[in-house]
Amino acid sequence: MSKIIVKSLKYKYPLTEALALNGLTFQIERGEFIGIIGRNGAGKSTLCAALSGLVPHFFKGAYGGSILIDGINVKESKLSDIARKVGIVFQNPFTQMTGAKDSVTEELAFGMENLAIPKTEMVRRIDDALRLLEIENLRDKNPFELSGGQMQRVAIASILVMLPEVIVLDEPTSQLDPQGTEEVFKAIKRLSNQGMTIIMVEHKTEKIAEYADRVMLLDQGQIVAFDPPAKLFSLSNLEERGVRPPVFTRVAKGLDIHDQVGLYPVTLESTVNEVQKVYESH
């Protein structure tokens, strides 16, 4: 059964002439980890906004085609109803804090208060989310006193407590230091292992290659390719599309090391494997 069904999705922001999304059709299965890549301005953030209903409900503009998530039509639904199905996390951890709560637990409770979840249930979900993201020690801290990586995990947790089935992450680590980045990736990996559907925009293609089941390459609001990482990163014209393949793939391409069907390795493990095969054959 398909979870997310997108049909000829088109979208134009107000006051603009060009289509930011130009006829996207694809499906995403339950529990998949999808990576989205593409140059600046390719339409990645716009697609994220469309999957979470911000396009068109927040941005307005002109909309065509449809997105069905678990049977509900995004265009016909209210943002608050979509929020129960799809959670979204942005780049800047700072602007994602509500700014109206002075402890992490209260910050997490915000979305549930809006959805009228009873207090006992709130407490249970908050405990679960804090544990899953390894931020139990921060529960009484003021959200604005946290480091970027901690704050971003609070942002993820505050989405998680609303129990969405899909989490969309738009460059969640682009404003974090290396340590914060590592913390956040670990957290995302854990969510994926729990069976959550994850859709992540990310420039660090090594991470995409490591985590994603499939990768979507966007350019000028259109899908160029939507394939498993090994296949996608083996494409020859990626640099022209503004994408740098993982460092392993670039090395392997340089040495012309590939598997039987001609795909280049994309992760450390697969590179080591292929190199070993080459050694053994000599």
């Binding site: 941005f59 002109a62 909309y63 085609g65």
Partner: peptide, 13 residues
């Protein structure tokens, strides 16, 4: 334009 409360979504085909 985000603060303009009179904006409406239109349909593309």
């Amino acid at each position: 334009i985000l603060f303009d409360n009179s904006q409406e979504t239109t349909t593309l085909d």
